[in-house]
Computed example of a mutant assay.
Amino acid sequence: MVYLANDKRYDTMVYNRVGASGLKVSAIALGLWNNFGSVDPLATQKAILHQAFDLGITYFDLANNYGPVPGSAEENFGRIMADDMKPYRDEMVIASKAGYYMWPGPYGDWGSRKSIIASANQSLQRTGLDYFDIFYTHRPDPDTPVEETAEALDQLVREGKALYIGISNYSGAQTKAIAAIFKELKTPFIIHQPRYNMFDRHIEQDLFPVLRAEKKAAVSFSSLAQGLLTDRYLHGIPKDSRAAKSTIPFLHEYQVEKTLSTVKQLNAIAANRGQSLAQMALAWNLREPEIASVLIGASRPSQVVDNVQALDHLAFTADELHQIDTILAEQAK
């Protein structure tokens, strides 16, 4: 059956400008870190992508090592694009990254010019794309001069392989340093991708002031704290959940137990707002003017539908924000 996108897809989605650039992105973005690898059914992946696009999601986030196996998320995305989404390419913002381990030897990791250029070329080949809308350095390299990393990313733009440049996992000071180099090179650096959620707010004091000064935006990942900020664990740890799988990084059973009281209190606030906890957590991220978009993950289309409904209630009262801050401050003790 030929895929025809929903002709109402742009009616309700929110689109935010990325800093001072001319680019706008959907306030909800789809990340392909999990559930899009070689171990996941391609039909399900296609259904998720179709559902996201039908709801107005235009920003799709990849990286060279997403899988498993590493690279398979890009390959699967490329198959789906070629099969039935290619006619919509110009309506999509597709991003990828280089910087984490991808192949053996000294060139398959980090941020040297050699590694970044080779990785970007491989990613384009896997996805079958002519260019990425945004290409990121996935993490700062302590052993490579920041000038070299910046110049490699600038080269990708000059060669027509990327329209815009982003950085991820850079501190405020590191962001300021590389932004100065991009400014001198006249590189279209527009966006940062940091970890940010109710349980991890470190960028509020470190990174946000730099983004404001530099007129850049952010798209947050781990916006739901790997599922902690959902109703998934309110009544125990399901056997098929991420927390129950020891192979899933960043989320373990002890974290669920440690945060359960806090999650229940936050869930009560969300219920009073007429939202699920996940919807409130996404709206909470988007309250920050520097956050242009929040990344979500999905293992089935219905999760995309649920998360996009966060946009139905983005506003917070001062009392709600105070309650949330108080609860989170107690958790942080």
Score class of each variant (00 low, 15 high):
Asn65Asp: 14
Ala47Glu: 12
Val18Glu: 01
Gly37Lys: 05
Pro104Trp: 08
Tyr101Cys: 03
Asp84Trp: 02
Lys97His: 08
Val93Lys: 02
Asp90Met: 03
Ala20Asp: 14
Ser112Ala: 02
Ala52Trp: 07
Pro104Thr: 02
Met85Pro: 02
Ser112Phe: 05
Ser112Thr: 15
Glu91Val: 01
Gly37Glu: 06
Asp83Cys: 06
His50Ser: 02
Tyr10Trp: 11
Gln51Ala: 10
Gln45Cys: 12
Val14Ile: 15
Ala95Arg: 06
Ser115Ile: 04
Pro41Asp: 12
Ala43Ser: 14
Tyr100Pro: 00
Ala95Asn: 11
Asp61Leu: 06
Ser26His: 08
Ser38Phe: 14
Thr12Tyr: 07
Ala43Pro: 00
Asp7Pro: 14
Ala73Gly: 03
Asn65Thr: 10
Gly111Ile: 07
Tyr59Ala: 12
Ala63Ser: 15
Pro104Val: 00
Gly99Glu: 15
Ala73Val: 07
Arg113Thr: 06
Arg17Asp: 00
Ala27Asn: 01
Val25Tyr: 04
Tyr107Thr: 03
Asp54Arg: 13
Gly19Leu: 03
Arg113Trp: 09
Glu91Cys: 01
Asn35Ala: 11
Val14Met: 15
Asn6Val: 06
Tyr66Met: 07
Ile80Arg: 03
Ile48Ser: 14
Ala98Thr: 10
Pro70Val: 06
Met102Cys: 10
Tyr59Trp: 09
Pro106Arg: 04
Ala52Gln: 06
Val18Phe: 02
Ser115Ala: 14
Phe53Cys: 01
Asp109Gln: 09
Pro106Phe: 07
Phe36Tyr: 12
Met102Trp: 12
Trp103Gln: 05
Asp109Ile: 07
Pro41Thr: 13
Lys97Asn: 11
Gly111Val: 07
Gly22Thr: 12
Gly111Phe: 02
Val93Met: 05
Ile116Leu: 10
Asn76Gln: 14
Arg113Asp: 09
Met13Cys: 08
Val39Tyr: 12
Ala47Gln: 12
Gly78Phe: 05
Thr44Glu: 12
Ile48Gly: 14
Asp7Gly: 00
Leu30Tyr: 10
Asn65Ser: 14
Val14Glu: 13
Gln51Glu: 15
Asp40Pro: 01
Asp83Ala: 15
Gly105Ala: 07
Trp110Phe: 14
Arg17Gln: 15
Ser21Glu: 08
Arg79Asn: 04
Lys8Tyr: 14
Gly22Pro: 05
Asp61Gln: 07
Ala43Gln: 15
Lys24Thr: 13
Arg113Glu: 13
Pro104Met: 01
Gly71Trp: 04
Ser72Leu: 12
Ala82Trp: 04
Leu32Val: 08
Trp103Met: 04
Asp54Pro: 08
Tyr10His: 13
Leu55Ile: 08
Asp84Arg: 03
Asp109Gly: 02
Phe53Ala: 02
Arg9Ala: 06
Asp90Glu: 11
Ala63Ile: 13
Arg17Gly: 11
Gln45Ala: 10
Ser26Glu: 11
Ala63Arg: 09
Asp7His: 12
Arg9Pro: 05
Asp40Ile: 10
Tyr88Glu: 04
Gly105Leu: 10
Ala63Cys: 10
Asp7Lys: 12
